[in-house]
Design a binder for these strands. Structure first.
Lengths: 187, 187
DNA sequence: GTCCCATAGTCAGTGATATGACTACTCCTA
DNA sequence: TAGGAGTAGTCATATCACTGACTATGGGAC
């Protein structure tokens, strides 16, 4: 009961095909959930069988036909029930953290390399989030948008994603500097 | 190939039984990995079969006997190989974020309640991390410890966990205040 | 003309992760 | 003297998440 609600939440933004949804999970939702297309198609099929979403065929001539899905009333009810069930906090679950945990007993060189790569990747994600935030709030400034906008959910999760990546970056940079200072690399 | 390295990293701190490891995964490592005891026992058995850890029986009279495990040289090599394989970034994967993503189309009341609970839980975890950090660095101040301490890995991952929970708390509080202001609760 | 990319989706299989129900012994408290 | 909590560990099963290989078509680059 996990991916299912993420899919329902994503479909609140409008009609999506499985393919489009996969893209959405690659960008906008990727900050708190990721899934490969195969998972999404499977989940969409299941949700449709249970009547939580409804699909309609769209005939296309220049490219393959597709099926667009929307959330039904039953789907909305399912989401409402979901918000009522207590959610347990999850942990970060990062391989990179496991590596840092063990770094004292290993050669730090490859760990440092990974931390540097990750810092760059995190900085890039921060920029992506910034662009997405600007797009979501349109011409309004953040404060006004959050007070008066009519679809702030994605904006708020985006803000969380941005904070997370920013912290990630700072931490990676701090740890890199530290490990460098402790074990000066030859050369 | 995921839990396995977390277990190896945890065993670097010294000998542990499955039971003790389960406790460690409940507190110190829980900031970046969580596993229930059954998973740990299964993983330990597998690691022992592969020669990455070695177990020894400890006879106890006042309580059940136990098996303590240590990382072997092969285990260290496995960890070293692990640090050399590129780690892909993971996402947050929080049910609570899914709820916030969907909040525009639902009754915000239960979501607000969950955000408040989570803010409190996050604050509590920050304090736990602070205590753990103090314990890890002993009498040294942070800067000195990080420069000269001989086991900084756990300290660094702990710092990351602390930052994460602090961000979590601030975000939850911000979103709570916002949703409250937008939809004044009756009563 | 061929190759690659984007769109759109399916199938089979595996390993990772989680759930629930157990055993067994000791110490401490009510 | 029963019950609960803590220590120590096992078994079976379900579900999740992910990997890799596939089909099919149209459009553009070389």
């Amino acid at each position: 009961m996990a991916l299912r609600h993420a899919v329902l939440a994503a479909l609140l933004d409008g009609e999506y095909s499985g393919y489009q949804l996969a893209k959405a999970f690659d960008v906008s939702l990727s900050n708190f959930w990721y899934a490969v297309p195969q998972q999404l198609y499977a989940e969409l099929a299941k949700l449709e069988r249970e009547g939580l979403i409804a699909g309609r065929q769209v005939i296309q001539h220049d490219r393959p036909n597709k099926r667009l899905f929307t959330v039904t009333d039953a789907g909305l009810a399912e989401l409402a029930a979901f918000t009522a069930t207590p959610s347990k906090p999850s942990s970060i679950r990062e391989d990179l953290l496991v590596m840092v945990q063990a770094v004292d007993r290993l050669d730090p060189t490859p760990v440092i390399a990974q931390l540097e790569e990750r810092a760059v990747a995190a900085a890039a994600k921060v920029e992506i989030f910034d662009r997405m935030l600007r797009r979501l709030r349109g011409e309004l400034d953040e404060e006004t948008f959050l007070r008066e906008g009519d679809r702030i959910g994605p904006y708020l999760t985006c803000l969380r994603g941005r904070r997370f990546e920013q912290e990630n970056r700072e931490w990676c940079e701090q740890v890199t500097a530290l490990l460098r200072a402790r074990a000066p690399l030859p050369g």
